[in-house]
Amino acid sequence: MSLFIEQILNGVQLGVALFLLAAGLTLIFGIMGVINLAHGSLYMIGAFAMAWATARTGSFWLGVPFGLAAAALTGVLMEVLIIRRLYARDHLDQVLATYGLILFFNQMATIIFGRQPLFLAPPSELSGFITLLPGMQYPVYRMVIIAAGLLVAIGLYLLIARTRIGMLVRAGATHREMVRALGVDITLLYTFVFALGALLAGFAGIMAGPLYGVTAGMGEQILILTFVVVVIGGVGSIRGAFYGALLVGIVDTMLRAFLPGLLRHFMAGQEADALGGGIGSMGVYLLMALVLAIKPKGLFPAHG
């Protein structure tokens, strides 16, 4: 039972990270109409910058703002230099240009940091375990990730639902031309949205670093899961991204954790592990297929 709760929490933790990425991806798509494959690169850049600064300064707490700044700055540069020219282009051009960016960023990361993953321990304040139930312990760091991710989700909701800039963002998503006609500096708004997405991606990368290690190509592994989230939740919908992320995070974690054990009741241990592992990693894609078979526009379509 405690194992079950622990895996649920792990699922929520993965879901929270996926939400941070999916929210940015879906905002950028919803508002600028751009599909940004290099979103995963921003996640990787956040993680690498944080790992580098932490190693340099010896302090996790200095590493975090450095990682955030690096991701956001890269995002702004990317938007101003390249993405901005792609708004009027079709999706194919956007996909290929941002694919070129992935090749560049991944290879740069390999050149600078090598092929070996960097591992870094969570800060000492956040290491150790807390007791959730009698006899059930859970790492503090993972708990903090869940809390931080949920706080960011609430903050994002307030930003978009309650502030003037959020109003512009929402208006820009549905009535782009009208917002422009009303004299809003849409170029600046776009850069802001892109930077916000980069910041969220960088934050997700920073939190994931101490858990999974920092390595070139880490962005694409999670980017593809993020796509699954966005498709399931409905493209352009932040609410959909939130529920989709939790669903994907929990389903993926649970299948990987429990499917081999379940299959072992029916077949030999080794085969069960192999097959369970395989189906476990395919599970979320099958979930996506199922959702699309019922609701082709995802669970929470953005417009209508």
Binding site: V231, M282, L292
Partner: peptide, 24 residues
């Protein structure tokens, strides 16, 4: 059943699913 950007994402995701299948 999908089109546009969803089609890009879903084809990528399915290919990745097959990839994981063969890895396992």
């Amino acid at each position: 059943r999908t089109s546009g950007v969803q089609f890009i994402m879903i084809t990528l995701a399915f290919a990745q699913m097959i990839y994981f299948l063969f890895v396992s």
